[in-house]
């Protein structure tokens, strides 16, 4: 088996300030990365990523801001920590992905996986509204926005038939507390 490879990393405009910022936000020292590629070998979703996880570590080390913020890797990563458990330098790799996603949004960089972002936004919308996630509404709103009500309809109906999707939300009483949390 060959290890997956991402696109070549070319030195362009290096931004050390960006490195520092991501390091602070992620709370982990990716400069310790020695490019062993264990993370990429173990990542279950590397087939669907452009840069491999080790490549992303290299991008942030070097401060290649544009490349790091516009790769699809940060959106595909699910935070399963299969990589960090294998990393010999104990780097919190998904923590770096989290920081990059947040930074990409702050800089209004268009998400390469808009559906994944749309899904996250619907989940947060639900939490803001009820304090908990209301799965049926999340799915319906997500599908409506995508103008695609029909793919997955069979799955939705099977879940409804099995009473897996509640029609009304489970909600908390103190919604003011949640409002406080969502205030910018």
């Amino acid at each position: 088996m060959t290890l997956p490879e991402g696109p070549p990393i070319r030195l362009g405009a290096l931004d050390p300030q960006f490195s520092r910022e991501i390091k602070k936000l992620a709370g982990t020292d990716f400069h310790a990365c020695l490019q062993c590629r264990s993370c990429s070998g173990g990542c279950p979703f590397s087939d669907h990523m452009d840069y491999m996880p080790n490549g992303v570590m290299r991008l942030v080390q070097l401060g290649l801001k544009q490349e790091a913020l516009s790769c699809n890797t940060i959106w595909i990563c699910v935070g399963c920590h299969t990589c960090s458990i294998q990393c010999p330098m104990a780097i919190d790799i998904p923590g770096v992905m989290d920081a990059l996603r947040e930074k990409a949004l702050a800089e209004n960089i268009e998400a390469i996986e808009p559906d994944i972002l749309a899904f996250h936004r619907e989940v947060l919308h639900s939490i803001a509204r009820y304090g908990r996630t209301h799965k049926l509404e999340i799915m319906l709103r997500y599908k409506l926005k995508k103008r695609d009500l029909f793919s997955d309809l069979d799955v939705g109906l099977r879940m409804l038939a099995k009473r897996k999707l509640d029609l009304s939300p489970s909600r908390i009483t103190d919604l003011e507390a949640i409002e406080k949390v969502f205030r910018p």
């Binding site: 699910v78 935070g79 996250h120 989940v123 947060l124």
Partner: peptide, 9 residues
């Protein structure tokens, strides 16, 4: 869930 930490720490 996965969504909050994905976009806002």
């Amino acid at each position: 869930s996965s969504s909050a930490h994905s976009i806002s720490h």
